[in-house]
Amino acid sequence: MNTIYILWLRQMKKYRRSGLRMVLSIIQPLVYFLALGYGFNSIFQQAGRGSYIQFIVPGVVAQTILFTSIFWGANIIFDKQFGFHKETLVAPVSRITVMLGGALGGATIGVIQGIVLFFIALIFGFHPYNLAGVFTSVGFMIMLSLAMVSFSSGIGAMVNDMPSFMAATNFLVVPLFFLSGSMYPLDNIPGVMKVIASVNPLSYAIDAMRSSLINQSHFGLTTDFLVMSGTLVVLFAFSVFRFTRIEA
């Protein structure tokens, strides 16, 4: 317990000391939100779908979390390259503990970024459906962030250099993001895309966020929750497995 805490604390300290990186990682999703939100708002409204700004905020919050979390494993590559990982690998602590300490750190950072973006969106006029929904959405942010951080840690444990890591994650993050319904509603899209979106776990995360923040749902909140739980369990197990395989 103490060990997980100190490993989590390590990540928090590093994050706080990272300075500019903290601010920069918010800017990209913010640009998406402002450019797309204001750019498409009137078309969306003319099509009778209501406010696009309302629609896109849950997606952009999820995107912030996705992007922060899925590159989390880069920290594991750094630990390998700077050698710190040897310190944890020979210590009498289980690899699950090591993985969990880091992953909880990454997930905390992901959720903080998501919440910051949510508050910025409030300033720009976003209004959530109700307060309970806001708290529910934080729960989903945690699940999404943990799942993505686990996945990314697993990849980080598998490969030893940054180019391979970036290739693997970039290869996945773009389709995952654009085929998830983050930018558009899923009900009137072509069949193939619909199929892809429905096997993409991120669609369910975004749907859950939309459901709790603006009360619009495509799959239903229960389905969202079940799919996300399943995804989290699988990705967590994957990561723990890869951690037990690290050699130096």
Partner: peptide, 16 residues
Amino acid sequence: DPSLDGDLTAFENMQL
């Protein structure tokens, strides 16, 4: 080879 965390202080490395 090195195995310290450079982003932590000397004391924090010991504490960890």
